[in-house]
Design a protein around this nucleic acid. Structure first.
Lengths: 213, 213
DNA sequence: GCCAGAATCTTGACACTGCCCAGATGAGCT
DNA sequence: AGCTCATCTGGGCAGTGTCAAGATTCTGGC
């Protein structure tokens, strides 16, 4: 039951990650809006200004939470990815999308936080940048592999990345923000809807786009 | 310079919409996070608790702002829509997407607020629901017209709505939240990227999806 | 072993926020 | 006229993010 080395109330070993964990829990339980630095500190059984010795402020803590979220996102995607054979490139492409969607549905609050720049100021936070780039690279690499083996058209890979990412990201956002609940789409089973959208997306990647004359 | 009928400090005529306007300005200038009810009141030259006679609380005011945003979104879309002839159904479909994108790029903070349910609690706000439904109906009607005239496949219209909406919504979100800035996509001109994504989307709507056996 | 300096944590404070209350003010109806 | 009620004010409460000063513990060099 004892922590690795819990000497006393002071210096309890690893307050930094304890705070991040507490913040992740709070975000998932109550959402980003209901999260306060003081409550995080309370959860870690620590005074209200102890976090300032590990983070520059609230935004900095939230950025760390976002970075952890991106790491988990990559893990989820790669877990889905590994279910397909190395030569099933289209299957792996679908898996990347499915992993993205699955993560968003299972961690809606965390997912929202990860894409909220005004809360996390990611521009000056290298951890978030790195985690984001890693997630994007997974998609890009998969698409490149598809193209090398003739599974998708020879269009610009970046352009196709944008199509894939935008479609899946929009699907996640509209669903977890419950926007579709205000439309006729609310009566359509979401799983089937998501699958059709993804199938249409994959089909569109096989089309050679007409170049401007 | 005088208001329509500014009798005195009390009952200055139309405080309700003055507060909404002030809130819209503040959202666009400083973002949703930096908006406080007291600051809105200050902008309207009114005491800090005057807003409570017109709104149930902060969330209620923000919901009103979101509703106003949806109205403007519909206006932007319809303005774009009218540029195309009544029988150019595919052109009008593209116009709906272009209007959506254009509104998001020109009103990023407002756009973000509109799709933030934890701030606006739209579930119990009929104004937001109505405005949202109206925006969706524009897309749905356009797609139905396309289908009637054979411009898109005979697949489920709702499914195609979801593809269109998700793709354009994701494009908007990823761009205005500056997520693409952390990826190789940052070096690609956005206009061309958006156009290619939209072209691929439209092309995919003409494909007949394979039914599950 | 021991002690100075650095790291960590606490307490206290300030300005700000959302929300609620009692009271002041004026508009509109009878 | 007078009365009623919606509107607006000011003060107050609990909670927040952030900072400064002091207390406590760890660490490296002797």
């Amino acid at each position: 039951m004892a922590e690795p080395h819990r000497q006393s109330d002071y210096h309890h070993g690893d307050l930094r990650s304890a705070l991040i964990d507490a913040a992740i829990d709070l975000v998932q339980e109550e959402g980003v809006g209901a999260l306060s630095l003081r409550q995080v500190a309370r959860r870690a059984h620590v005074s209200h200004s102890a976090p300032y010795h590990h983070f520059r402020g609230k935004a900095d803590l939230l950025a760390e939470v976002a970075a952890a979220g991106f790491d988990r996102l990559v893990q989820t995607i790669e877990a889905e990815f590994q279910k397909y054979a190395a030569d099933d490139h289209l299957g792996r492409l679908v898996a990347v999308g499915a992993g993205y969607l699955s993560f968003a549905l299972q961690n809606p609050s965390l997912f929202r936080l990860m894409f909220r720049p005004e809360m996390t100021s990611p521009g000056d936070h290298p951890g978030v940048r790195a985690a984001e780039s890693r997630a994007f690279a997974t998609l890009q690499d998969t698409l490149v592999a598809c193209q090398l083996h003739g599974n998708v058209s020879s269009d610009s890979v970046l352009s196709m990345c944008m199509s894939c990412w935008a479609t899946m990201h929009g699907l996640c956002m509209l669903w977890i923000d419950q926007v579709v609940d205000e439309t006729p789409l609310r009566d359509v089973p979401f799983d089937g809807l998501a699958q059709e959208v993804q199938e249409r997306l994959v089909a569109s990647l096989t089309l050679k786009m007409a170049k401007a004359p």
